[in-house]
């Protein structure tokens, strides 16, 4: 298929064909990454890439940076604490300034939902959403799907149980939309204060009891309570959360024997996931990191017209 998007803002309006296309391209890059063969695919030496991060990040930012470098781009990092933002410069002006300096592609992370779209509408440069508020985090979801596809050989009919704080989690939103349209069976689990009644309008079904939810699961996707994005008091304590929703070895038994466990990290070990599970044989937590680089390479490659 022919890639036609200038930007990748979210997965809500991306077709299954486009998602498959991204995953296929990522597969090629994964092979090169595993074979330590990336030097040969540097194709964008004259392009400038900026990671525009208004929120803290380790994984996503490094992942984008390495992905871009693997493709030969000049990479620059922007952090809101060390730039004119601290002098009150608007998002709009910051982007227009960087655009005027010759930036070709932005990866933006911002605390406001809708910020990536806002930027994409105001710059001719390419925009990759690296997380906007609690709206979407498409590259995370794509690497999650890539990991599931790699381990299960398919997405259609795979039962994926997402356990955690859905309301305040952008990866949950992107995954709920994307996995549903890829044919996976999506089950949402978490405290009722963290899953709105209307959440299942996005896709999937809600099951309140975690052990009930995990039955026959192919994939468990657990994630952190987003304490920095929610008001205090929605969950009584991390202990209470861990007791009723934490993923431990006993709970894995409710799932299929070959269940895989995904976590987007950072993990709060002992809270939503025990170390025994995170480091155990079902865990793909660190495989996901490698896949993240491959998926982001694929996206940069496609947005910059690598196929044409």
């Amino acid at each position: 298929m022919k890639w036609e998007r200038k930007d990748l803002i979210g997965l809500e309006d991306v077709s299954p064909e486009e998602i498959w296309h991204i995953l296929e391209v990522a597969k090629g890059f994964k092979k090169k990454l595993v074979e330590k063969d990336v030097k040969k695919i540097a194709t964008f030496e004259n392009k400038n890439f900026v990671t525009l991060f208004y929120q803290a990040s380790t994984r996503t930012r490094f992942s984008f940076e390495i992905a871009a470098k693997n493709l030969g781009l000049n990479v620059m990092n922007f952090s809101s604490a060390t730039t004119s933002v601290s002098k009150g410069e608007s998002l709009y002006d910051t982007v227009k300034t960087l655009e005027a300096m010759g930036v070709d592609i932005f990866a933006i992370r911002h605390g406001m939902s809708g910020s990536a779209r806002y930027i994409a509408e105001h710059t001719p440069a390419h925009v990759l959403n690296a997380g906007d508020g609690v709206h979407e985090h498409p590259t995370q979801s794509l690497l999650d799907m890539f990991t599931i596809w790699e381990s299960k050989g398919k997405l259609d009919g795979v039962k994926v149980v997402l356990v955690g704080d859905h309301d305040h989690n952008r990866s949950s939103r992107s995954n709920t939309w994307a996995l549903s349209k890829m044919g996976a069976e999506v089950v949402l689990c978490g405290p009722r204060t963290l899953v709105s009644d209307e959440y299942t309008d996005l896709g999937g079904r809600f099951v309140g009891d975690v052990e009930e939810a995990l039955k026959e699961a192919d994939v468990i996707y657990t994630f952190r309570i987003q304490q920095e994005r929610q008001e205090p008091g929605l969950v009584p304590s991390l202990g209470e959360y861990s007791r009723f929703y934490g993923i431990n070895e006993e709970r894995l038994r409710f799932a299929k024997p070959d269940v895989v466990v995904l976590h987007p990290a950072p993990m709060i070990r002992g809270s939503e996931i025990t170390s025994a599970v995170a480091d155990g044989s079902h865990s793909l937590v660190f495989e996901m990191v490698t896949n993240g680089v491959a998926v982001r390479m694929a996206l940069i490659y496609l947005l910059l017209g690598g196929e044409s």
């Binding site: 939902s113 906007d132 609690v134 709206h135 309301d167 952008r170 709105s196 209307e198 309008d201 996005l202």
Partner: peptide, 13 residues
Amino acid sequence: KEGKTAVRLGVKG
């Protein structure tokens, strides 16, 4: 308003 649109956009309802 709290509801489907708020959930979809990822903004507080």
